[in-house]
Computed example of a mutant assay.
Amino acid sequence: MAGGWSRDGAVQDQIDASVEDAIARARGKLARGESLKQCEECDAAIPEARRKAVPGVRLCIECQRAQDADAAHSGYNRRGSKDSQLR
């Protein structure tokens, strides 16, 4: 259902484009190539099982966990409260 000057399906097209952009951004962050034997951050050994399971791995489990925790706070309000978005 379109409203105003937008055509039918325009909102869904915008949502689809946003999802496609997010997928492309996530795929671009995936590691490629040969896995490292030592972590880039702390120089700890990366176990062979992890290197086989995650091609192109560059961080040990602990450093990866810390990096994932930092990235988890994207700054977007996904709850949809307009009041909190105005702050």
Rank of each mutant, 00 (worst) to 15 (best):
R32I: 02
R7D: 06
G33Y: 15
D21E: 10
G33Q: 09
L30F: 10
L36H: 09
D13W: 00
A31G: 11
A31R: 04
S6A: 13
E34M: 13
A26E: 11
A31M: 03
S18N: 11
A10R: 07
G33T: 12
V19I: 15
A22P: 03
E40N: 05
E20C: 02
V19K: 09
Q14V: 06
I23Q: 15
D21F: 01
A22L: 15
A22E: 15
C39Y: 01
A10S: 12
A31V: 04
I23E: 14
G33A: 10
A24Y: 01
L36A: 14
D13P: 07
E20F: 00
A17Q: 13
E40Y: 04
D13V: 07
G28A: 05
E40C: 00
G33C: 12
E40D: 06
K37L: 11
S18V: 15
D8F: 05
A24H: 04
D8V: 07
Q38F: 10
D16K: 10
A10D: 13
A24D: 02
V11T: 02
Q14W: 01
E20T: 09
G9E: 00
G28D: 00
R7S: 10
A31E: 08
A26G: 03
D13S: 08
A26W: 01
A22K: 13
R32H: 15
D8Q: 10
R27F: 08
L36C: 05
S35E: 10
R25Q: 07
R7T: 04
A17G: 07
D21G: 05
Q12S: 08
A22H: 09
L36F: 14
D8M: 07
D16C: 02
I15G: 00
R27K: 15
A17N: 04
E20H: 11
E20Y: 03
I23K: 14
D13H: 08
D16Y: 04
A17S: 14
V11D: 06
G9W: 12
L30C: 07
I15L: 09
K37W: 09
G9A: 00
V19Y: 05
A24R: 13
E34F: 07
S35K: 08
C39R: 04
A24P: 06
E34C: 01
D13K: 01
S6Q: 07
D21W: 04
S6M: 14
K37C: 01
G9Q: 04
S18Q: 15
D13C: 05
Q38C: 12
A17T: 07
I23S: 11
E20W: 01
L36S: 07
R25V: 02
V19T: 13
G33N: 13
A31F: 08
E20K: 10
S6L: 03
D16N: 11
E40S: 08
S35L: 09
Q12F: 05
D16I: 02
A17P: 09
D8H: 04
Q12R: 01
C39V: 09
S18T: 15
L36W: 01
Q14N: 12
G28M: 01
Q12L: 03
S6D: 11
C39F: 00
I15Y: 02
G28E: 03
A17E: 14
A31L: 00
L30T: 11
Q12Y: 05
R27Q: 09
R32G: 11
E34D: 15
